[in-house]
Design a binder for these strands. Sequence first.
DNA 1: GGAGACGGCGCC
DNA 2: AAAGGGCGCCGTCTCC
Length: 569
Amino acid sequence: MQIYKTIPPSLTKEEVCAIDTELYGLPRHQLHRPNQGHFASMQVCFDGKSVYVTQNETDVPKFMKAISKATHLFHNASFDIRHLRRWCSYPDKKDMFDTLILERILWGGYFDSFGLKDLARRYLDILVSKAEREEFATQETMTPEMLTYAATDALLTWQIFQKQKTFMRPEDLHIWNNLDKPALYAILDFKGMPMDKEKWIKLAQDNKQKAEEIQASLSFNLNSPKQVLEALHKMGIKKIESTEAKTLAQFSQYPLVSNILLYRTLNKRASTYGLDFAERYIEANNKVYSDYDVTMASTGRMSSSDPNSQNLPSEKSYRECFIAESGHEIVVLDYSAQEPRITAYESGDSTLLEALQNKKVDVHTAVTRDIYDDQTIKKSDPRRHFGKAMNLGLTYGLTATGLRRKLYEEDGIEMPYEQAEELVSKYFRKFSKVKYWIDQIRKFGERNGYVQTHSGRRTWLNRYNYHWLNNACNSPIQGGAADVTKLALARFRSDCQKANLEFPVIAVVHDEFVLHVPKELLETYTKIAETAMVEEAEKLYTGVPFEVEIKHGRSWACKVEEEETLTQL
DNA sequence: GGAGACGGCGCC
DNA sequence: AAAGGGCGCCGTCTCC
């Protein structure tokens, strides 16, 4: 490897250039924050041999200008682009590849490590150390070893891409170009979530105090499953081996057990969603900036971290902490029954399709009517819980036992095993093409070792997992839903650009978009977002109607717009 | 004393 | 034998 400390020569459109950036002093949980850390170095490699490096941030625009025509490569583009934009403009570039995301597109479910060093091992048979990387967090100058490390990263990215692209099918390229890359650019434009910090802290303190009171009354550590189990055994509950909530629920008549369950809830609130959260993530402007990963999950779903904004408590009091700034509103748009619609497309089941087309009742009620062959069943009918559980669970490989548990946990319904079994078979008799599709896709997975979504996003199946074939039917559905969400996200952003409007997304939770919009633009944004969501979904899954539920208000706990419309009528 | 596994649990 | 899937984060515990 030859290192040059000069501006690289001007590259042509045909050349391919790997880019890597290092920063000093990035806090561990804020690697994605452009208001943290500062420039250490930028290095580029366009021939697989030589690396051009600068440690001067004023060189960044000069580097960028020289390589602007070439195809760009990054390993984790979201990190580099986000930070590079501090020192130069980096508009959406079409000729750009991310070896990290490409690797997930190619090998999701097959491998479970996707770091640069993992790829170097797999593609190049090179063992590299990442020890130097840690030093950037605490150092302010670069040792020769750190410089070599940084240069090597760019070199490896270039070399890996040469090998990686030989594995790419047209479908993989399609997923990158039309789904994941546009979604990546959209994610980089997400705005911070404005928060009511005081309210959050009040909740945290209340929960912490209540949790501590329970802990103080007991002589063992409630946070230790080991000690909890021991205490329960001593008390006479001998036959349990696990202390997770669903097991303990069976013994809730014991005051100790119900106290443990209460503690767990309070402590979850006080720890994961507590004072540390506020301290670490709520910034001086009272906003929270999550990091998003476009293709973390093996199914193609996005993930969120630092903090994870996809698993915040759905409880009203917590959602009320995410508030609109003055003159603004929060808008929440979510796909109704997104996954059952994809199941309907994949299976071509006309009964399910008709249930989804029924505008008069919701899909869970419609499916319940079909299961029981009774078209008079209303939304309030207790049997709707069964239809709902089937709708949501069957593509995960739901069994009679799983159905019973689901109903008990979520709706407090106790159902005899035989009845659950009968319900499952009734469902499959009625929706016979769904059953047929499940059987076929399982066979496909067994034969090929992978399955894919309608867009062609592939997930490899792990044969060493005893229920590995459940993923055969789950991945095309869950992954298909992720495909829809990404298409809609990119379309929404592009339509905002066309209308010369700022991109107002502050969070995406799988099938839900959360926007923060000026009040006077509420209708404009809502219309653009809804259209993008519905049209992109219906374009991909032709023939299936998609619906989006829209809410808006002062906070993420906003009331349902439908209710307003109903009262108006 | 730091890393990683594990149990547990928040969300879709 | 087997209790659908996908994530990220917390605290404990073990190991080095």
